[in-house]
Amino acid sequence: MRVFSLVCLVMLCSAAARAEAPAAEPSQSEAGRFAMSPAEGGMLRLDKQTGAVSFCTVEGGLSVCRVAAEERAALQEEIDRLARENAQLRAKLPGAAPEATAPRKGLPGEEEFERALSFTERFLRRMMQLFREEAPKGDSL
């Protein structure tokens, strides 16, 4: 009986959401994409296209679906694999320095500081020169 009332509540919430926010009609491929099955404390939602399973409940009047635990582990494993692959590919790029991929630690060295100071000084000198060239030469009305 509890599962039946939960199913009714989910159906009412989804009908209310559709009535509040009219959305575009689902395409032929999306129609019937999900299959819902009652489970203790909620519903299981199966995505027929991807095979992903989610556990859905109603919390605070909203439908909330969470990815199944074993899928979460598989997704994290795939994210980690892709991060490693990305790092390997970045290292193979021409001109890629190993320190460019590693985060910096501590303050810059004296040479790097002097170089940055030199860039800043050259920038400020050029800006001052531009201001002097653009400044009015006096009142010549």
Rank of each mutant, 00 (worst) to 15 (best):
G61A: 09
E85W: 11
A87T: 09
S63Q: 03
K92M: 15
P103R: 07
E85M: 10
S63H: 01
A96S: 10
A91P: 02
R72W: 04
L82C: 11
A116W: 00
E70H: 04
E112F: 01
V67R: 01
A73N: 05
T101N: 13
E111A: 10
C65S: 06
R115A: 11
L62E: 04
L89P: 05
R90F: 08
E78K: 03
K92N: 13
A73T: 08
E112Q: 02
E111N: 10
A83G: 15
L75T: 08
E110F: 12
G106P: 03
P108E: 10
A74N: 08
A87G: 12
G61Y: 05
R84Y: 14
C65N: 03
L107N: 12
L75Y: 03
R81A: 14
P108V: 05
K105D: 15
T120N: 05
D80R: 02
A73P: 02
V64W: 14
L93M: 09
P103L: 07
L62N: 06
R84G: 13
L75D: 06
L82Y: 12
L75G: 05
C65H: 02
E114C: 12
A102F: 15
F113P: 00
I79F: 00
L89V: 15
Q76Y: 03
A116Y: 00
R84L: 11
A69T: 13
Q76R: 13
G61S: 08
R90H: 07
R81Y: 11
A68R: 01
A68Q: 00
A83I: 11
G106V: 06
L107H: 09
L117E: 04
G61E: 05
A69G: 11
R104S: 06
F123V: 13
E85G: 10
S118L: 13
N86P: 03
L75W: 02
A116M: 06
E85L: 12
E99V: 09
E99I: 09
F119K: 08
A83N: 14
F113D: 02
R81H: 08
K105Y: 03
F123T: 11
E114F: 13
A96E: 15
A73Q: 05
E71G: 03
I79P: 00
Q76K: 14
F113W: 01
P94K: 00
E99M: 08
R72M: 11
E70P: 00
P103S: 12
